[in-house]
Design a binder for these strands. Structure first.
Lengths: 256, 256
DNA sequence: CTTGACCCTCACGCAACGTGAGGGTGTAAC
DNA sequence: GTTACACCCTCACGTTGCGTGAGGGTCAAG
């Protein structure tokens, strides 16, 4: 691939992308979008590749993801632009559907107004049940390691109801509780291997196929990502390490 | 109208509207949505009317308006729910169109990827040219006083291009510059009446029919709303009062 | 050289909540 | 009556993602 010689100044890039210069400064500052070049006088110079990354950033931002998450996604070794674009497309289509739902609720409200009747509150707020970002994100975090896995989980989860999500959450929380209990009871990671296996099956059932090798990769992710650490540690100090070790113990005994 | 006996606790209202309890606390705190009742123990109790107001809040929030603006709109004496719903509907439909545009840009990006070609940057970011809230807001501020006027201006402005907006802004800025120059030169508001007339015609041309009486109402708004004050004062100290007085002088001489 | 548009870094401030802390209320079960 | 649990209150620190200057440098045209 030929080196891209065309560059844009910060204001040019901002204008093209419909964002502010300050936004681009900020993204540079936090390492989200660092311009590929700087002029001799220190001016930021953005390349086409930079603009493509910016496009991804704006798509995910539009979908409501926090910048920190966006950065992690884009920097993941398994990140693949085509797959990401497709996934983002699906989420955007879903968003359109929801907005259409809001519009229909407006129509019904206008209708009720003209008839002098009242709408049920639930129907008034249709379309506002935005997908739960925390939920999506927690689950998404378990996916990012595997792009194909992400795709598969998207295929599956798109049809999940609130009840499904509630069940997923209950099951997940239950497993975490049991991990915490095992740790508190002084058990070793090897003793918790069954729990790890159940955890793996939980992901397999609800999200995507997960080999034990993949599970170990996930354990690495748990240890590396401070947000997982925060989640686990809030339950029991040392839980992150414990879960990760249990996962490794599970993989090791399967290999035995 | 019969008094509405049905009430909802804060969590019930939050669940119905798909927002958090904290959000409702916050809205109460800032006076945006104050529950109609409180129980003997101090619990917030929301009525159906409260939920209808919340619906409006969420619609305008969804469209990107700041809460302060939302509050002003809903508290305006000329606020009319049906008209507001219709206007919001139109803005939401526009938003759907823009998101569809984003999706089409994704499709083109995927196409280019498969062909190994590159997209023009402008086309990559199509759909992200979100309507300029500051612009809309500045212009909307000139509308709120008259609901019919708002409707008319919406009808007109929906088809305005970026060039139109640029022209509007240039004209508006130009007028403001001339007002500031007149003030700085020590002219009286009476001497600036012609400018006021041009200002009135500017609004008539781009937004809605504006009588001189209506123009005076606008002058009142300029003086009453701190945000206008901020805008004018940033150009020249005392400009708010000057413009308002010029508008009144213009109306007075037309009556002479 | 001057002017005007653009560039840089630095940094205070804000909107809109999120997340506890600490304590009260209501209801059902024991 | 006590306990447990889910919900309620106010208070308040903190976060995210910029907006808005301040103060000064760069570039190109007149």
């Amino acid at each position: 691939m030929v080196t891209d010689a065309k560059t844009y100044t910060v204001s040019e890039a901002a204008r093209l992308a419909h964002v502010t210069v300050r936004t681009l400064h900020h993204y540079d500052e936090i390492g989200l979008l660092v311009p590929s070049k700087r002029s001799a006088s220190g001016y930021r110079l953005y390349t086409d590749a930079d603009l493509r990354r910016l496009h991804q950033i704006l798509l995910l931002r539009e979908l409501g993801f926090p910048l920190e998450t966006i950065g992690r996604v884009l920097d993941d070794p398994s990140y693949d632009r085509a797959t990401a674009l497709r996934a983002q497309r699906e989420l955007l289509v879903e968003r359109i559907r929801r907005t259409e739902s809001v519009v229909r609720a407006i129509d019904r409200a206008l209708d009720a107004l003209e008839r002098g009747t009242e709408m049920e509150p639930e129907r008034l707020f249709e379309g506002f049940e935005d997908f739960d970002h925390a939920q999506y994100e927690a689950e998404a975090r378990e996916r990012w390691g595997h792009t194909e896995a992400y795709k598969e989980s998207l295929r599956r989860t798109r049809r999940y109801t609130k009840e499904d999500w509630a069940a997923i959450r209950a099951e997940s929380e239950g497993l975490m509780d049991e991990f915490a209990a095992a740790l508190t009871a002084g058990k070793s990671p090897e003793d918790a291997a069954d729990l790890a296996e159940r955890h793996r099956l939980h992901i397999e059932r609800w999200f995507y196929p997960l080999t034990r090798e993949g599970h170990v990769g996930l354990a690495d992710l748990y240890e590396a990502d401070a947000r997982f650490g925060k989640y686990f540690e809030s339950r029991a100090p040392g839980l992150t390490q414990f879960v990760a070790s249990a996962i490794r113990a599970n993989a090791a005994r399967a290999g035995a």
